[in-house]
């Protein structure tokens, strides 16, 4: 039994790697994650970059270092030269009248204002403020781009596993190889399991690759596996149904794209809608998957919540499967 399942899986993998569209689907999530990773540091790049003289007050330098990068230069000429370079560096020289700012004039918008705010902070350090200011955690423990971008990407690429299964089935339909399969000793169950395995393996591979690229190395592996597998299941069912009923890959991909609507709808709804509106998204398995992945990334996930969310996903999947079961069975025959 296992030999036949593996035979089907390896055939699909081999064939998939020789198909431009499937190879693209396999690689593109990794590329998106790399691009996302490159974009994320820019969220933390809102730090000042200044140049000061050696003679500057060490306390001033120390305060500046709390707010960004500080370069220390020997004299005024060296400082002016440094400011003249193409990057955004503001020169700061302490004078009896206050702090002199030297800018190149080609700085990005907001750079000078940010440095001015920091310098003001230094100059008003002894000022008695007539109000009490207290800072509290607003819940943003990491870049929203990294947090939501990663969660969204993982939920989105879960569909890709189903898509690969679908394209492999379309290939079987186009070449009528299903007829040859149906007159071999492989059982329907073995064939479906062999075909479907890629729909689980691929999202798992993609999910962990994305998490690794995005630097989320301390997340809970077990919970991630459970959530990714549960969401992959519904993508797989759609992949089977569309694959069985389409004779060419372009029409199959077009049909699969319709599935993107609930994904985008539920994920963006979960991101931007007030929680009172969330019950309108409860029907979507992708909503529960997004919530779970988000909690995993924030390291706030607990098994009870993860299992409950996965249970919702499985219940919705079972309902979809019950509705489509006859079509799937007919298609294989």
């Amino acid at each position: 039994m296992l030999t036949r399942i593996i035979a089907v899986l390896t055939r699909d993998l081999k064939s998939g790697l020789r198909d431009a569209m499937i190879a693209y689907i396999m690689i593109v999530p990794i590329l998106i994650a790399i691009v996302l990773k490159l974009l994320v540091p820019s969220a933390g790049a809102n730090l000042i970059h200044v140049a000061v003289l050696e003679s500057a007050d060490p306390a001033f330098i120390s305060m500046l270092e709390d707010h960004g990068r500080v370069e220390i230069l020997a004299d005024r000429d060296a400082l002016v030269n440094r400011v003249s370079a193409v990057d955004d560096v503001i020169g700061l020289i302490e004078t009896p009248q206050g702090t002199e700012m030297i800018a190149g004039g080609n700085e990005q918008e907001g750079t000078v204002e940010m440095v001015t705010a920091v310098v003001d902070l230094w100059q008003n350090r002894d000022l008695e403020i007539p109000v009490l200011v207290r800072f509290s955690d607003v819940g943003w423990e990491l870049s929203p781009l990294a947090q939501y971008g990663t969660s969204f990407l993982i939920v989105f690429v879960s569909v890709f596993g189903g898509m690969v299964v679908m394209l492999n089935l379309v290939e079987e339909k186009q070449a009528n190889t299903l007829a040859a399969i149906n007159v071999s000793a492989i059982s329907r169950l073995e064939f479906v399991v062999g075909k479907g395995l890629l729909g689980f393996i691929l999202p798992l591979f993609h999910a962990f690759a994305i998490l690794l690229i995005m630097g989320f190395t301390s997340i809970h592996i077990g919970m991630t596996v459970v959530v990714v597998l549960s969401i992959a299941l519904i993508s797989l069912i759609f992949g089977f149904v569309i694959g069985i009923y389409n004779d060419n890959s372009m029409s199959a991909v077009s049909s699969m794209k319709i599935g993107f609507i609930p994904i985008f709808g539920s994920v963006f709804g979960a991101m931007f809608l007030d929680s009172q509106w969330h019950p309108f998204l409860y029907w979507s398995p992708f909503y529960w998957a997004f919530r779970s992945i988000d909690q995993i990334i924030l390291q706030q996930a607990v098994w009870n919540d993860m299992l409950l969310n996965s249970l919702y996903i499985l219940l919705i999947t079972m309902m979809v499967f019950a509705l489509l079961y006859k079509r799937i069975k007919r298609g294989f025959a």
Binding site: A175, T177, A180
Partner: peptide, 9 residues
């Protein structure tokens, strides 16, 4: 089969 049905890839 009358119509050949093999895996092209």
């Amino acid at each position: 089969f009358e119509q050949s049905n093999v895996y092209g890839k």
